[in-house]
């Protein structure tokens, strides 16, 4: 299944959940926030949220800034 992850094309398994995607990327359990198609997916829903073909996913964190 093709999705867009942080602005880049990304392949993942069909019906991959957000938590599976985070595991694959190494960010499970890390302090990140996830948005799918411009909507926040709360941390409590990462396990149950199944991604779909063409979804636009953003995984963000906090970095230094002014």
């Amino acid at each position: 299944m093709h999705i867009t992850l942080n602005g880049h094309p990304h392949d993942c398994g069909d019906n991959f959940t957000v938590i599976q995607l985070l595991h694959e990327a190494g960010y499970a359990g890390r302090r990140v926030a996830v948005e799918v198609n411009h909507e926040i997916v709360p941390r409590s829903q990462h396990g149950g949220y199944a991604l779909r073909e063409g979804d636009k996913v953003e995984i963000v964190h906090a970095i230094g800034g002014g």
Partner: peptide, 29 residues
Amino acid sequence: TAAIRRVNLGQDPHAPNLLDALPPGEFTL
């Protein structure tokens, strides 16, 4: 202050980050 940015996929997710250096319990982010 802190900026919100995409994580760098492919880099070490366990590298220290801003919130380790300035924990939200110690500072108002």
